[in-house]
Write a protein that binds this DNA or RNA. Structure first.
Lengths: 168, 168
DNA sequence: ATAAACTTTCAATAATTTTTGAAAGTTAAA
DNA sequence: TTTAACTTTCAAAAATTATTGAAAGTTTAT
């Protein structure tokens, strides 16, 4: 396959995966584009490469900065802004894990904790089933949370080394 | 909080989490409803509880069966179908992991592998950056895949025991 | 065979999400 | 201070996704 075709395929695949996991497809595509760009790109270049509007590019880049995945750069003597992506895949994974944990896992964990405190008649099957499901989900969520917490602080080789050694 | 209010809150929270992770909100809500129902429910009961149409309920229930999360039940002497959710949270987690791995991770892994084989000029920064990002993502994806593979076969207490012991 | 009870399908509609593009805003050089 | 270069905003439009509901389909009892 040609490099140009391969790049397009990568951008498309990354966009598809993103949208399947609740991430705006364009945001994932812009991220993909920057991940395979050796140099920082301007808004103009991104608009052209992905055929998107200035407004869309601007908002998407702002979001990516908010996710901690890219940064603005300035070149001496130039007015326009350049965008550059961190290429360290372990950093990226940790950053995404950190944000999704904060934005989506923690709020639901808060609700689950609150729901765990609801009291009722232990003889009531409705109550018993509710309580069991909520508590069990809560326990799982806490384990996931702990694992993510560890991952966020971990060195890549140590993390996978530990996990895969145990699992063998 | 009242049990009735708590149930609604749980259904809402589960629906929200689902939609944030690319799962149809209604599907997550129906699943939540069945998770806290001690008895199997009819389509009619689900429609009423969530204020959704028959068509929506029918399609959603079919999808949940496709995800391996609920099953149809029949009661002796009755024509109508009942739906019952597996309440084992570890089973649920494994089932969801299994399906998402199959539907979303594996297709992207296939593309990444294909893209890893693209050859080019090692002096070309465009090629070098492309290759490095694709390879690094591929490696991470393989580790995630292996971990999920282990999880799918694992007993809950062994899995978390192993992980959290190492991380401590 | 017919009817009653129930389920499925899917074209039309509604709701939500994403994108556009032009106007307003900002910054820095002339 | 004016202008040019660039960025940001956001209401309107477009695209996508989800939902409805009624007709068609199926199954079982009579």
């Amino acid at each position: 396959m040609e490099l140009v075709a391969a790049k397009l395929k990568f951008i498309e695949a990354w966009g598809k995966l993103g949208s399947e996991w609740g991430i705006n497809r364009t945001m994932a595509q812009v991220h993909a584009l920057l991940l395979i760009s050796p140099e920082a790109l301007t808004t103009e270049e991104i608009m052209d490469a992905l055929s998107i509007s200035r407004g869309n590019a601007n908002m998407t880049l702002r979001d990516l900065i908010g996710w901690g995945l890219i940064e603005k750069q300035h070149k001496a003597g130039e007015r326009k802004e350049y965008f550059f992506a961190d290429k360290d895949v372990w950093n990226i994974a940790r950053q995404v894990a950190k944000e999704r944990k904060k934005r989506e896992l923690e709020p639901v964990l808060k609700v689950l904790n609150e729901l765990s405190t609801v009291v009722g008649d232990e003889k009531d099957p409705e109550y018993k089933t509710f309580k069991k499901s909520v508590n069990d989900i809560n326990k799982l969520a806490v384990n996931v949370d702990k694992t993510l917490e560890t991952m966020l602080k971990a060195e890549e080789s140590w993390f996978w080394g530990s996990i895969l050694k145990v699992f063998k």
